[in-house]
């Protein structure tokens, strides 16, 4: 299986690469201005987090919009990748009322393949100044934290997911399981 990581300038982009590698996936970090044509024959795509402030200036997110429109396979957006996804599909991302850094508690509200086999509440690691404030049409919110209502979302029918927290970080509980669940979707997208 081949799942690449689009680098949006995150401190943990390389961690995403490592987690995928440890799960036995063929993976590579690619810059976010890679033409979508260069991402063919992949089973999935991860849009990393990063320093760009999606809620203030999404212009540094390169070709993430093209990937969301034309990649065709499963996509997992993390942090900035997740916020950009919301904005791109007609939702909204803006500076968070209470930015979260470090430890937080995830509350899974909607059962989904991404959280299959996991408890309803567990500890996750955060690092964000902006957040999704309005869900895009066609998306459903899956999880929240005490200070952020959209910690996870997905498209109702397409295999497109967004996470505000960081499953790739060691201190996040069940991070590896979340990636494994995403890979199950990549294996069998419909």
């Amino acid at each position: 299986m081949r799942v690449f990581v689009v680098d949006n300038g995150g401190q943990w982009t390389h961690r995403e690469w490592r987690v995928l590698k440890y799960l036995g996936v063929e993976t590579k970090i690619v810059p976010n201005d890679t033409p979508v044509g260069g991402l063919q024959d992949l089973d999935g795509l991860v849009l990393s987090g990063g320093a760009p402030r999606v809620g203030v200036d999404p212009s540094k997110m390169g070709r993430n919009g093209e990937y969301l429109d034309a990649f065709g396979g499963p996509i997992l957006g993390i942090c900035a990748g997740h916020q950009f996804m919301a904005k791109h599909f007609g939702g909204e991302a803006a500076p968070a009322k209470v930015p979260e850094f470090g430890k937080s508690l995830l509350n899974v509200r909607e059962p989904d393949v991404l959280f299959e086999g996991l408890p309803d509440r567990f500890e996750v690691w955060e690092s964000h100044n902006d957040e999704v404030t309005v869900l895009p049409p066609g998306f459903v919110g899956l999880a929240s934290s005490p200070n952020c209502s959209v910690q996870a979302m997905r498209h109702r029918s397409e295999p497109i997911f967004g996470l505000q927290f960081h499953p790739e970080v060691e201190h996040t509980q069940f991070g590896g399981e979340i990636f494994r669940n995403f890979l199950k979707v990549c294996e069998n997208p419909r």
Partner: peptide, 16 residues
């Protein structure tokens, strides 16, 4: 090692 160049930043990545 990885954290050295990650935290040093460059292009999109902020220098921590």
């Amino acid at each position: 090692i990885a954290p050295d160049w990650i935290e040093s930043g460059g292009q999109l990545r902020d220098r921590i």
